[in-house]
């Protein structure tokens, strides 16, 4: 497990904000198919707000920085994905282990993903970001390496295509939600890839 030093946080934030900006139109298009079409813009607004204060976040100890980034997303995203991604990071910060071995980090991530599930009143298999986050957490538990984790995230997002939405706006569509990738699953996979590629470069 790569030890994430606070100093690398601006790089991580830049990588996350870059991938969201680069894929904002795609995320919006996915969301227009089965949601309300605001995911790309909302995520871009939130991550640009985080980018603007990257140095201030990096000055904090990592757990505090994670909480602060999460709070910034909550306050700036402007859709349900704000509290969902915000809860993920705030819980991860709260649960961040003193020693960052793989098992401890995986356990912190599990609590963070569980908190997202509670916030969204959802669970795996309902065509949401959880369908990416849980497989990524499991991959970490299994000791997969960073490129494998990125590939698992991408495959998990693809696997939401045949799923039927049960939570969120997409659930109004019922069977018509089948055949489209979930926008939140896609943004989660993009962020996972951005993070592991950045850590892989350390």
């Amino acid at each position: 497990m790569t030890n994430v030093a606070p100093a690398s946080l601006p790089t991580l934030i830049a990588a996350a904000a870059d991938t969201i900006a680069a894929h904002a139109d795609e995320l919006t298009a996915l969301d227009q198919a089965i949601g309300d079409g605001d995911h790309g813009l909302n995520m871009k607004r939130g991550f640009e707000a985080v980018r603007a204060e990257a140095d201030a976040f990096a000055a904090k100890p990592l757990p505090e920085a994670l909480k602060a980034v999460g709070m910034k997303l909550v306050m700036t995203v402007g859709g349900a994905s704000g509290p969902l991604y915000g809860t993920l990071l705030m819980t991860l910060g709260k649960e961040w282990p003193a020693t960052q071995d793989r098992v401890s980090v995986a356990e912190a991530l599990r609590k963070a993903v569980d908190a997202v599930a509670a916030r969204g009143k959802s669970q795996a298999g309902q065509k949401t970001m959880l369908d990416v986050l849980y497989p990524v957490q499991a991959a970490l538990v299994e000791g997969k390496n960073l490129p494998e984790i990125a590939a698992i995230a991408d495959a998990a997002a693809e696997a939401t295509i045949p799923m039927k939405a049960i939570r969120g706006r997409a659930s109004f569509l019922g069977d018509r939600s089948i055949g489209h990738m979930d926008a939140g699953a896609r943004s989660s996979a993009l962020l996972v890839r951005a993070v592991v590629e950045t850590l892989g470069d350390v």
Partner: peptide, 15 residues
């Protein structure tokens, strides 16, 4: 009104 308003309201109450 819709889902995001509920999720954001829950977050606001918690905060």
């Amino acid at each position: 009104d819709l889902g995001g308003a509920e999720t954001n309201s829950e977050m606001a109450v918690e905060m």
